[in-house]
Amino acid sequence: MIGSLLAAVLSSVGYGVSTIMQAVGARRAGGLGAVAQPLVIAAFVVDGLAWLLSLLALDHLPLFVVQAVIASSLVVVVLLARLVLGATMRRLDVLAVVAVVAALVVIALSGDEQPAVHPPAGFDAVMIAAAVVVAVGTLLAYSSGPPVLLAVLGGLGYSVAAIAARAAHADGDLLDTVLQPLAIPIVVGGVAGALAYLRALERGSVGTAAAMVSVLEVVVPGVVGLSVLGDFVRSGWVLPAALALLVALAGCVVLARSPANAAAEAGDDGVPVAAPTT
């Protein structure tokens, strides 16, 4: 369990570092040229490593713990934006960082070793259908859909990918995960979520989009994990875990709306360039 918790923390740090790397790289070239920047390419590699670490974390931890830790990458983004980009960090942001870290300690303590529970019959088909719905919704909304809808689709896409990854791990190691039907919603949900979120950042408020995605990718997988996938909270820790989860989410919303986060999510021309986790 300690190893899985460490993997979740490292995954969160990786996603936060990747966001800053993409922000710095985007400042060196405009538009699609930013994609060819070595720093941006390296950031994509870091993203991939962070994703693999999140899969390792899902081996033994409940979804609500892993997703809460990963959502806290906003802490890393805000702190690094202050140090690397010289972004403004409000006193409220400092309080939010402390609150999120303290809440994550409680959440981590509330999660016990989780058994590998096989999902119910028809679960694979439901997840594939959910991923397709999110993907189609993203395609339809991409051109002129409201930013709020795009942010919701982004959060749901990341949620589908996380839920499918947790369920897939009941059948074995990473190779087994890749070679089963649940790999489809992992990939489709993740890609659709990333596209929808980036478009939401481009067309709307960075803070609002980041906050909505952070909340959805914690709450939706957490509920499904507890109700369907056999995740559970340690005896006597239900209330502390629930309160800590609310505090962590509130802190993430504050950090998502921080000037430091906005600076990390935007290039020189103010166009958002980076996405959060899955």
Rank of each mutant, 00 (worst) to 15 (best):
G155T: 12
L179T: 15
L153F: 03
V247F: 10
E202W: 00
A141M: 10
V218T: 11
I186Q: 12
P259Q: 05
A103G: 06
I70A: 13
A81V: 06
A42E: 03
A129K: 03
A260R: 12
A242N: 00
G193F: 11
G222I: 05
S72I: 07
A248V: 09
L92Q: 13
A23C: 10
V206T: 05
H118A: 15
S144H: 14
V220H: 01
L61E: 14
V218K: 01
A36C: 04
A29L: 05
V218W: 08
V17N: 05
A23V: 03
A262T: 12
C252R: 02
D171R: 15
G111I: 06
G111H: 11
P147T: 02
V238F: 14
A183Q: 11
G172A: 06
P259W: 04
S73Q: 15
A170G: 07
V228L: 14
A242F: 07
D231E: 00
H118T: 15
L39D: 07
R203Q: 08
L139N: 02
L149G: 05
A71Y: 06
G86V: 10
P38C: 10
V97Q: 11
N261D: 05
R166K: 15
V224Q: 11
A151D: 00
H60F: 15
L255E: 02
A264Y: 01
S72M: 13
P240E: 09
S110K: 03
G267S: 12
